[in-house]
Amino acid sequence: MKLLPTLAGLLLCAGLPLIAHAEAPPSGCTEVKVDGYKAPDYGCLSQQMGNNPQAAKAAQKNKEAQNVPIEKRPPNQVGLSTPAATSVRMGNTFGTSVKPQRP
């Protein structure tokens, strides 16, 4: 009679790793719950996102898009005043006086 509970305990213990493994997240990253709030492992997630082979091409295209020649940049990026900015600065005196409403 002692053999039956021992055998049942062994079978139960043998099935536990399968149950625990089935509940693990499929992404390989662990999520921690603290007071009911989930806190994902951002280091793991960013590492997974960084393994994209096309990421280098995308980064190169982003750099090329940011390197706009100076003659094609908007005036406010170059340091010039735009009509809208001048209108805001001059206020109600725009077009009627040389003294701005706002300095």
Rank of each mutant, 00 (worst) to 15 (best):
L80P: 00
P103Q: 13
A58E: 14
A58M: 15
A56M: 11
L11D: 03
Q60A: 15
S27V: 00
P83G: 10
R89A: 13
E23Y: 11
L18Q: 11
L45C: 01
D35H: 01
R102T: 10
A58R: 13
S97E: 10
G28E: 01
K72P: 02
L10A: 10
L7E: 02
Q66Y: 00
A59F: 13
A14C: 07
A58Q: 11
P25F: 13
Q47S: 12
M1R: 09
E31F: 03
L12T: 07
R102V: 08
F94W: 10
P17K: 11
G50E: 13
P100W: 01
A14Q: 12
A59N: 14
E64Y: 04
T6R: 11
E64T: 01
N76C: 03
N62T: 15
K99C: 06
T96C: 01
P74I: 00
K38P: 00
S81H: 03
A8F: 05
E23D: 12
G43P: 02
G91P: 01
R73L: 09
M90N: 08
A58H: 12
A58F: 09
L10E: 03
L12H: 04
T6E: 08
V78L: 15
P83E: 04
V98E: 13
L18K: 11
Q101D: 04
T93Y: 09
K72S: 14
K72Y: 03
A20M: 06
G50M: 12
L45I: 01
A22Q: 10
P26W: 07
G36A: 04
K63L: 14
Q101W: 09
H21G: 04
A55Q: 15
K2P: 06
T93C: 11
N62P: 02
S46D: 13
Q66K: 02
L80W: 03
G28Q: 04
S87Y: 08
G9E: 10
V34T: 02
M1Y: 10
S87E: 08
K2E: 11
H21Q: 10
N76A: 05
Q60I: 05
Q66P: 01
V88I: 04
Y42T: 05
S27F: 00
P5D: 07
A39T: 03
G36Q: 05
R73P: 03
G79W: 14
G15C: 12
A56D: 12
P103E: 13
V34G: 05
K38L: 00
K2M: 12
I19N: 09
C44L: 02
A8M: 05
G36S: 04
T96S: 09
T96F: 03
A20Q: 07
A22V: 04
P17R: 11
Q77W: 02
Q54H: 14
G9V: 09
K61L: 10
A84P: 05
Y42K: 11
A85V: 06
Q77S: 15
K63W: 01
